[in-house]
Design a protein around this nucleic acid. Structure first.
Length: 853
DNA sequence: GTAGGGTTAG
């Protein structure tokens, strides 16, 4: 059967032994190899590649081996090598190469290129040296090959050497070599060197421009990228799909609308708008530029779509919160890969659909593709958002089991998840293990905000300060970290530190970041410096929704209702759309207007749905009830409670009760009490409030009964805590607390202060003492309230003229309020107390809050 | 082609 020269075209799965006893020695032709001229063998080799038949190539290899005659036919062996390389048989190719008695430049070049392509630069360099030792002069092809390896491995050291050799050899005049040199510098991040090579080139092709443009994009120098693009056109180079898609991606990263549209228009002119990669880049561009209609337009017009286009469209919808459209796209995609799944998962997370995200993850595990670190990061983030401790532990275990924990992104996500799922200790454990350098600022920020959220201000602050000691501080502190820490300063009232961080932000050039700016405004406002807050707001370049909400809230903190409503009008005038928070704020602002603003408030409330399509939530109803009852419109408040689509919760009854107290509306107050006690029988703050209602209306008996009941229920008040910052340290006090190191001085100082104030007309009001006790004991309780201790400390240590700033976790009691008024006039000090209800600013015997008690 | 920590309210 095996006949002479007819070489069988075996099916691809037929795999005979390499050195097969081939028909070469059969009887039909006693010495057949001699009869095949090398030209024909070359022909057959080409056929082997064309028909994808490796066995044919191998057969020819053995023919060549058997015949000494062919050994010096370098060209033939070169063809053989390229056949092997086409089939990715590097070892076979190398064997063939090693069999060659006199390899030429082409032989070397093919193998150098083959090694380079797979990143084995050492083997490539060895061959390169060997070649030079043999006196063979490297050509441009070899240089390009070696540079390709350097690009692959970002090996700048070798790359620079090759560059020098290429210059010496005069190869750099070749545009391909110069392009590769640039590419090498770009991949190593040496953008200036790349530019330098580019500037020196005599001849440039479109790849040269593309390389240098993409270098600028990688270096975030979008404007320069765009300038180069202009220059390119002026030099008569039109650009291709690569130039266009690179530029478009630059514009989408640089968020430049006009330039992006200009490039789009240019792509249309070149007829490249139907190109796949250009279309994909356009989808991304318009997603970033928040133009969903254009995204859809581009997507619909694309004649050819790949999985990237579909995923891009999915991301586009998710970006705009069109969750169902995104899901629809996902279901319609003709092909999905893990990136598409990741996009859907991340989109669920971004849009608050945590449970759907977790369900999707289950599905991915069941029938989806192999998960990646992206998948893991997304599911961990989703879990962080859901916030359930138990689920987070499950996911955590899974991630460990799958061996993803060494990835920096995953690690940071895990830490954040622990921080948000009530597992701060676990978060700390991750933090204490050696956190990978790149993710330090992120994990650090997560942990700081977790501690602040957890009511551990001192720990948050000390963590921040320990980070400040790092010498690479400037590299790791960025906008987000600063915004977080400013938030901590604000919520804890660290005025001095807040100011320092403002200065730091200024120095490190990030005050322009809108998030940092918003945080600065809120920090000043919460630290009692409304003026600085307003000044900073006014000098911000740009305001977004959060900025305006922050401004309104700043006014609200100081009970400046009219100003808050003015800010709202301005915001509306400037076209800034409000959100549910805005409405919560402006409705609440109506409590603090100088004249009755009930009708304004009602109109605002009605406009929520009709004009802004924001459905009022229970919180909005609660705020409305507060405003109505605050102005004494109890009937309207009652009607609203009855008609609202929610079951009234404790906050509504509490608001109502508080205002009943204010207007001495005992009968409605009593109803509110009953509701409150059924809803929250265990909440001590309800009892405090109720007791205050009775006390205020002189019903001592009821008040006493209530206290009895409280005792029977075993309720304790949330311990009131006040603190003050002095010399970057938090000094906190509980009632009758003697743990402070300067406790003695503070107590005697306070006693002097009380005596002085009594002389000036302060009368202790023991009705604010809820404990059952003799009158003298009550006074004792009253005098050493935490806020009084903190203020006394502040008065003792503050520099002349300095404002005494005290923070309190719960509301200031009425007696302290009266007392501080007098203290401010007796000592001539300005005293600022921030409590649960906002600010009290005591100055010259008055409080800005008017009669908040 | 995709990703992490934040700023307003509570």
């Amino acid at each position: 059967m095996a006949s002479t020269i007819i070489i069988p075209f075996l099916p691809p799965n037929h795999n005979p032994k390499p050195h097969l006893k081939f028909s070469t020695s059969t009887s039909a032709s006693p010495n057949p190899t001699h009869s095949i001229p090398p030209r024909n063998l070359t022909h057959l080799l080409r056929l082997s590649t064309q028909t994808q038949n490796l066995n044919l190539g191998k057969s020819i290899h053995s023919i060549i081996l058997k015949s000494q005659h062919y050994n010096d036919h370098t060209r033939l062996l070169n063809s053989l090598i390229s056949v092997y390389l086409k089939f990715n048989r590097l070892i076979d190719a190398r064997n063939a190469f090693d069999e060659m008695p006199s390899p030429d430049i082409a032989s070397f070049a093919s193998l150098i290129s083959a090694y380079s392509k797979i990143g084995r630069e050492i083997d490539a360099v060895l061959l390169f040296d060997q070649m030079r030792q043999l006196g063979i002069f490297p050509n441009g092809f070899c240089f390009v090959a070696l540079l390709t390896a350097c690009i692959r491995n970002s090996n700048c050291e070798l790359g620079t050497q090759i560059h020098a050799l290429a210059v010496k050899a005069g190869s750099c005049d070749c545009v391909y070599v110069a392009n590769a040199v640039m590419g090498m510098y770009v991949s190593c991040g040496f953008f200036e060197d790349a530019l330098d090579v580019f500037d020196k080139m005599n001849e440039r092709d479109v790849s040269s421009w593309n390389t240098v443009i993409s270098a600028m994009v990688k270096d975030c120098r979008y404007r320069e990228a765009f300038e180069l693009f202009r220059e390119m056109k002026m030099e008569g180079e039109f650009g291709d799909r690569f130039s266009i898609s690179t530029l478009l991606s630059a514009m989408s990263q640089g968020f430049s609308l006009e330039e992006g549209e200009a490039v789009h228009a240019y792509a249309l002119k070149l007829g490249l708008d139907f190109d796949l990669s250009v279309g994909n880049a356009l989808i991304r561009l318009y997603t970033q530029l928040s133009d969903i209609e254009k995204v859809i337009g581009v997507f619909d017009r694309m004649p050819e779509k790949d999985v990237i286009s579909w995923t891009g469209m999915l991301n586009g919808f998710m970006e705009f919160g069109f969750i169902e459209s995104a899901v629809d796209i996902f279901e319609k995609m003709p092909k999905r890969n893990i990136v598409s799944y990741n996009a859907l998962l991340a989109g669920f997370c971004k849009n608050g659909e945590g449970l759907r995200g977790l369900r999707l993850f289950q599905q991915i595990l069941k029938d989806g593709p192999k998960i990646s670190d992206f998948t893991v990061t997304s599911v961990v983030n989703t879990c962080a958002m859901v916030g359930e401790r138990k689920k987070s532990e499950q996911i955590h275990g899974f991630v460990i089991k799958m061996g993803f924990t060494s990835n920096a992104w995953v690690e940071a996500a895990l830490l954040d998840m622990c921080a948000k799922c009530d597992r701060v200790e676990d978060a700390e454990k991750i933090y204490d293990r050696k956190i990978q350098k790149g993710s330090f600022p992120i994990t650090w920020t997560s942990l700081i905000s977790a501690r602040a959220r957890n009511g551990q201000p001192e720990e948050a602050l000390s963590l921040f300060q320990s980070g400040l000691k790092r010498d690479d501080l400037m590299d790791v502190i960025d906008e987000v970290t600063l915004a977080t820490v400013l938030g901590v300063c604000g919520s804890l009232g660290f005025a001095v530190m807040g100011e320092q961080i403002h200065g730091f932000a200024y120095k490190s050039n990030v005050v322009g970041d809108i998030g940092v700016g918003n945080a600065i405004v809120s920090m000043y406002s919460k630290c009692g410096n409304l003026e600085n807050a307003l000044n900073f707001f006014n000098q911000m370049h740009r305001h977004d929704l959060v900025s305006w909400n922050g401004l309104i809230n700043s006014y609200l903190n100081y009970r400046k209702g009219d100003e808050a409503l003015n800010a709202w009008s301005k915001m509306e005038l400037l076209g800034q759309k409000p959100d549910h928070i805005t409405f919560l704020l402006i409705i609440s602002a109506c409590k603090f207007t100088t004249s009755n603003s009930v009708s304004t408030c009602q109109n605002l409330f009605l406009s929520m749905l009709s004009s802004y399509n924001i459905k009022p939530s229970l919180e909005h109803y609660s705020a409305m009830v507060d405003v109505l009852s605050c102005w004494g419109h109890f009937d309207e408040a009652k009607n609203l409670i009855i008609s609202m689509p929610f079951k009234p919760d404790a906050s509504i009854w509490r608001a109502l009760l508080e205002n009943c107290k204010k207007h001495s509306n005992i009968s409605l107050g009593r109803q509110a009490i009953q509701k409150l006690l059924t809803l929250e029988p265990k909440d001590p703050s309800s009892y405090t409030l109720i007791s205050n209602l009775y006390s205020a209306s002189g019903r001592w008996h009821c008040s006493n009964k209530l206290r009895q009941e409280m005792r029977l229920n075993g309720l304790k008040k949330i311990p009131a805590k006040s603190w003050i910052i002095h010399q970057n340290t938090v000094h906190s006090f509980y009632g009758r607390d003697k743990s402070h190191s300067q406790s003695k001085d503070i107590y005697s100082g306070l006693e002097v202060l009380i005596l002085e104030c009594m002389k000036a007309g302060y009368e202790p009001d023991t009705s604010f003492v809820l404990q059952e006790a003799e009158e003298y004991q009550k006074r004792h309780f009253l005098f050493y309230h935490s806020a009084k201790l903190a203020v006394a400390y502040g008065v003792l240590v503050a520099r002349p003229g300095e404002v005494v700033r005290v923070m309190k976790n719960v509301r200031l009691c009425g007696d302290c309020h009266e007392f501080f008024k007098v203290v401010s006039s007796v000592t001539g000090r300005r005293i600022l107390v921030r409590d649960g209800s906002g600010f009290h600013r005591f100055e010259g015997g008055e409080c800005i809050c008017g009669d908040c008690w």
